Simulated scan of single mutants.
Amino acid sequence: MTTSSPAPAGRAAPLPPQERRTAILHAVRGLVLARGAAVTTRELAQAAGVSEGTLFRVFDDKAALVRETVHAALDPTEAVPLLDAIDRGLPLDERLARVLEIGFERVGETMRWVAVLHELGRGDPGFEHSVQARREVHAQWVRRQEEGQAAVRFAVTRVLEPDAAQFARPLHQVVQLLDVVLVGAAMQQADAARRGTTAEVPEIDVLVTHFLHGALAPSPLRRQS
């Protein structure tokens, strides 16, 4: 009976092309975020644990690898497992706080990755001046973002579903309004960072309380009505 020979010691078994592509994108993510468009192919190959030749058998060039790394990192669906991991047995305000925490983390990461993408565009004039290339990349980007954002909304809906009967509005509207709160607070913080000032963004518990109970303080008159 014959058996296949094991892979030589110290060398991983070859991966199928798509798995190798995904593994490389994951392996170089931290390096690309730290170095941006200035990262070298040698650094990328070392981070991925492959030769430079292997990189270019998988990706057209360094710019393509960096760009795909950014696009993969910006995929909204990366938040879905984190949202699904929220304990449905927690009180509603604690679940909402965790949703906002995850959202703020994702917004912050997104801004850093978009900066890398802009840096890459400035250093790749051929790509920037190719109208067709820009349109194709943008179309793919929009499609992936729309699909990913829909998946995130469904995940948030699942988090809030145990308390659906307590909300004054349909659950899909509650999720939309929660997104308004998240994006508004995150943009306020980002704008202050660009201006070099400190944003007075409310703490997450304040945002949760305001979202659930509104801006009006309880009063005897309203309790009687």
Rank of each mutant, 00 (worst) to 15 (best):
A168D: 08
A215R: 14
M187D: 15
T157G: 01
V50C: 02
G196R: 09
A27D: 10
R222S: 15
E119Q: 09
V174Y: 09
L212F: 14
E119M: 04
R195A: 15
T209Y: 03
L33R: 14
A38S: 05
M1Y: 10
V206Q: 14
L120V: 06
E109L: 11
L15R: 13
F127Y: 15
E147N: 00
R106K: 02
R158W: 13
R144W: 07
K62V: 00
A217V: 13
L212T: 13
A72P: 00
R223Y: 04
P6E: 13
Q145K: 11
T77R: 15
Q176G: 07
G126R: 03
E109R: 11
R144S: 15
A45R: 00
R144M: 12
T197F: 12
R20V: 01
G30N: 10
S5M: 12
A7L: 03
H118P: 01
H71A: 15
V70E: 13
Q149H: 09
Q189E: 14
T77C: 11
D61E: 00
V107M: 12
L182C: 03
E101V: 08
F127S: 13
A168V: 09
V39W: 05
P218Q: 05
R106L: 08
F167R: 06
V137H: 11
Q18L: 09
A73W: 11
A48G: 02
L90A: 11
G49F: 06
L216T: 14
R169A: 13
P202W: 09
V107A: 12
